[in-house]
């Protein structure tokens, strides 16, 4: 028996898909409703990101307007950091939303691998300077705020930086735990499939 002997040879065309009770052949009505619901949910997430980050941008921009000298620079750095982070998350979100199912399978799997990775090196390269910018801005604000209690001391700024580094580390670790729970298995499956197609 050869592989060719298993070809449907026209017989499969007699399958009456339209009259199968378990298959919805004309899904337009359901489809449009489903799409609308999906879009609504995705828009909610997007709106949430814009609101949270946008709020911080507005907050720090107002702070920048009200302050002078080093404090103003600190607020400007925070506003810039949050603004750029907002753009970064928007870009990441829109890219994730746009899965190209029409690409050749190998390309599709490579893209999926990138999408499901916890943080790609490109994302780390982008987010690293943003975190430094925000940390730096924050430490300037803290140092300036405590200037009257600790004149000329950089200790408050150093403490802030340490807390900031720990908080960033905890955030990364918590995100990783969540990723392990929800996406690691899928990610591993995608990698296996991609390797299989690349062999």
């Amino acid at each position: 028996m050869e592989l060719d002997d298993f070809k449907p040879a026209g017989k499969a065309d007699t399958i009456d898909v339209k009259n199968r009770k378990d298959v919805k052949v004309d899904p337009l009505q359901e489809l449009i409703a489903e799409m609308k619901e999906k879009d609504k949910q995705e828009n909610k997430v997007l709106l949430g990101i814009i609101l949270v980050f946008g709020l911080f941008v507005v907050l720090y921009l107002s702070g920048m307007k009200l302050q002078k000298g080093a404090m103003q620079a600190g607020y400007a750095m925070l506003a810039g950091g949050f603004g750029l982070s907002l753009l970064f998350f928007l870009f990441k979100f829109l890219k994730q939303k746009k899965t190209d199912y029409t690409a050749p399978t190998l390309v599709f799997l490579r893209e999926a691998e990138r999408r499901y990775a916890y943080w790609t090196w490109q994302e780390l390269v982008i987010s690293g300077p943003l975190l430094v910018l925000m940390g730096w801005g924050g430490s300037i604000i803290v140092t300036s705020s405590f200037e009257k209690y600790y004149p000329g001391s950089i200790l408050p700024g150093l403490i802030f930086i340490m807390v900031y580094i720990v908080a960033t580390g905890v955030g990364y670790w918590a995100g990783k735990m969540q990723w392990d729970k929800s996406k690691r298995t899928i990610y591993k499956k995608i990698r296996r499939m991609k390797d299989d197609f690349s062999k």
């Binding site: 199912y101 029409t102 690409a103 050749p104 399978t105 599709f108 799997l109 999926a112 499939m193």
Partner: peptide, 10 residues
Amino acid sequence: YRVAVNTCLS
């Protein structure tokens, strides 16, 4: 076919 295969793998 491409969409179908990618969707099935997905």
